[in-house]
Simulated assay, not measured.
Amino acid sequence: MKTSFILNKSQTDYAIKSDSLYPLPAGFYLKQFVLLILSAMLFIWLSRSESIDMALTRMWFDPLTHTFPWKDNYWLDVVNHRLLKQIVIGVGIVLLLAGVIRRQPRWVLVALLMGIGPLVVGVLKATSAHSCPWDLIEFGGKAVSYPLLGVTPANSGPGRCFPGGHASSGFSALALFFLFYPRQPRLAWALWWTAMVIGMLMGFGQIMRGAHFLSHNLWAAWWVWLTQCMTFGCVTHLLKKRKTL
């Protein structure tokens, strides 16, 4: 029994090391599914309540001038809103080109994952009737706010503000998790948390400018990670199934 166990472990390790597009176990996706469901329930409550969103945004709103003083701040607009986004996109492009040149399919897939997550968020944002804080009546605008899954009012404003598109660029780096897991799980999770921090910082900069609510950024992270998990799982499963035919 002991010899059999050792042999099986050796074969598993060899399979992981020799397959650049290794499939992850079903248990991993089950855990992610449960966590995504639980976090979705929390985010739905947060979005429907709106109390935390409103309270946090009011901290950066000047009721005397009816404006967001940090809206045109250089560091928030140029550095946080533009430069950081361009850096993340640049990392994805470099990884994609390196993967093609060195014929590393996992690098290519991870680079594509970095683009797929924000793309999904962008589509959802473009079709959303929820307006940004600076467009709402509460913050000097003319649009009416309404809770997530609520009835859309006639004067909901320009919309196109949910989930947070800018934060999704930072969260796209969550894909780097798949570059190292399960060979280097500690590094993979460290990169995952780093991407979460970057995404939240980029999103918080938008909160300060009046461009998004906290829930907008949280949902951006949710959709990016869901999309990346599903895409990586489907691609690796199909490749594994093709090899067994």
Score class of each variant (00 low, 15 high):
residue 72 D to N: 11
residue 134 W to L: 15
residue 185 P to S: 11
residue 11 Q to D: 09
residue 113 L to N: 03
residue 129 A to D: 13
residue 26 A to L: 13
residue 71 K to R: 13
residue 201 L to R: 06
residue 155 N to V: 07
residue 116 I to Y: 07
residue 121 V to T: 04
residue 118 P to Q: 10
residue 47 S to R: 01
residue 234 C to L: 14
residue 45 W to V: 15
residue 143 A to G: 00
residue 44 I to D: 01
residue 188 A to S: 09
residue 23 P to G: 12
residue 197 V to M: 10
residue 37 I to G: 10
residue 197 V to T: 14
residue 128 S to E: 09
residue 204 F to R: 05
residue 236 T to P: 06
residue 4 S to T: 11
residue 31 K to T: 10
residue 204 F to S: 14
residue 142 K to N: 12
residue 13 D to W: 06
residue 48 R to M: 08
residue 162 F to I: 09
residue 196 M to T: 12
residue 76 L to K: 07
residue 49 S to M: 02
residue 123 V to C: 07
residue 92 G to N: 12
residue 40 A to T: 14
residue 77 D to T: 14
residue 235 V to P: 01
residue 2 K to T: 11
residue 173 A to N: 01
residue 31 K to D: 06
residue 93 I to Q: 00
residue 159 G to C: 03
residue 111 A to Q: 00
residue 4 S to D: 12
residue 92 G to K: 08
residue 116 I to S: 14
residue 138 E to C: 02
residue 146 Y to S: 06
residue 198 I to P: 03
residue 31 K to I: 14
residue 49 S to F: 01
residue 30 L to T: 10
residue 168 S to I: 02
residue 28 F to M: 11
residue 131 S to F: 05
residue 92 G to L: 10
residue 101 I to S: 00
residue 15 A to C: 04
residue 154 A to Q: 11
residue 38 L to H: 02
residue 60 W to G: 01
residue 43 F to S: 01
residue 203 G to F: 00
residue 2 K to N: 12
residue 119 L to N: 00
residue 141 G to I: 03
residue 210 G to I: 05
residue 77 D to W: 11
residue 54 M to I: 14
residue 188 A to C: 04
residue 138 E to V: 03
residue 60 W to Y: 11
residue 30 L to F: 13
residue 4 S to M: 07
residue 4 S to H: 07
residue 86 Q to C: 00
residue 243 K to D: 10
residue 133 P to V: 05
residue 230 M to R: 03
residue 167 A to T: 06
residue 99 G to W: 00
residue 2 K to M: 11
residue 215 S to M: 05
residue 127 T to M: 10
residue 223 W to L: 10
residue 55 A to V: 03
residue 14 Y to Q: 09
residue 48 R to V: 09
residue 141 G to E: 05
residue 183 R to K: 14
residue 238 L to I: 08
residue 144 V to L: 14
residue 21 L to R: 02
residue 213 F to V: 04
residue 173 A to H: 01
residue 155 N to M: 08
residue 64 L to P: 00
residue 81 H to E: 13
residue 140 G to P: 05
residue 140 G to V: 01
residue 166 H to T: 05
residue 72 D to S: 07
residue 134 W to F: 15
residue 76 L to F: 13
residue 52 I to K: 03
residue 86 Q to L: 15
residue 74 Y to T: 09
residue 11 Q to K: 11
residue 235 V to A: 01
residue 103 R to W: 13
residue 65 T to N: 08
residue 65 T to I: 08
residue 224 V to W: 15
residue 150 G to C: 12
residue 146 Y to D: 06
residue 12 T to Y: 11
residue 94 V to Q: 01
residue 104 Q to N: 09
residue 236 T to Y: 03
residue 127 T to S: 10
residue 132 C to W: 15
residue 8 N to A: 14
residue 2 K to A: 11
residue 122 G to F: 03
residue 79 V to P: 01
residue 160 R to G: 12
residue 191 L to Q: 05
residue 92 G to A: 13
residue 178 F to N: 06
residue 37 I to R: 02
residue 242 R to N: 08
residue 31 K to M: 12
residue 68 F to W: 01
residue 140 G to S: 05
residue 224 V to F: 15
residue 19 D to V: 10
residue 65 T to C: 04
residue 200 M to Q: 03
residue 193 W to G: 07
residue 162 F to W: 13
